[in-house]
Amino acid sequence: MQHDNLVEIEDVAFDYGARPVLKGINLTAKRGQVIAIMGSSGCGKTTLLRLIGGQITPSQGTGRVAGESLGELDQAGLYRLRRKMGMLFQFGALFTDMSVFDNVAFQLREHSDLPEDAIRDMVLMKLHAVGLRGAACLMPAELSGGMARRVALARAIALDPQLVMYDEPFAGLDPISLGVTGNLIRRLTDTLGLTSILVTHDVQESLKIVDYVYFVSEGVIVAEGTADDIRASGLPYVHQFVHGEAEGPVTFHYPAAPYVTDLRLGEQSA
């Protein structure tokens, strides 16, 4: 194989205005692997996916997907590259003016000249894979949160892309759908030979299916390794995350002034 790594992120930094979010991230995803990105809420995981999708441009560093450098592509090139990518958005982002069926069929209709019969079969296959074939003619407003997410998953894989990015695919799923979705991601990756990047908080579920894990904190990768490495890791950060402990190096709070100062406890007692 020519490019073993489908995604290569090198020393990428990004900031929203004055606030740096990512400060030099290195990450690679090999073909056929499931990669997980974990980290506390607000640490920049969604931002990282948007960088890989070329929706935002890093202030520093380079990203390569399928051998193409993101920074050097013009809009047409970027769109060509994106046909090889699928993305599950954190909040689904289904087209609210189209039925479930039309949502999944959207890319097939936009990017191929397939006859409607063939599209129908392919869409029903994808919907069947996420267990929602029966919901094909519902509108997105008629779906529950977890169902919408599964439809979005079906839509993300509609074109059989080489790279699929899932932004929290497990959020809002019951334990059964959660296990099924996890297995689906693993199976898709293995049978279609695609590459999956998974952003998730669900450590236990994702450790079952992933090949490699990156932990992001304060804009950098603080730990990485295979699922077994992570389970066995002695790093306090990873330990805290895997076991969901409140006390440890991971701060639950968004940066703020000291609590005591904010509540003006000092002033009152003075």
Binding site: Q55, F91, F106, Q107
Partner: peptide, 13 residues
């Protein structure tokens, strides 16, 4: 609701 972003990610302008 990110529908426009999603469309861009699907290579549709």
């Amino acid at each position: 609701t990110e529908q426009l972003s999603a469309m861009e990610m699907m290579a549709v302008d």
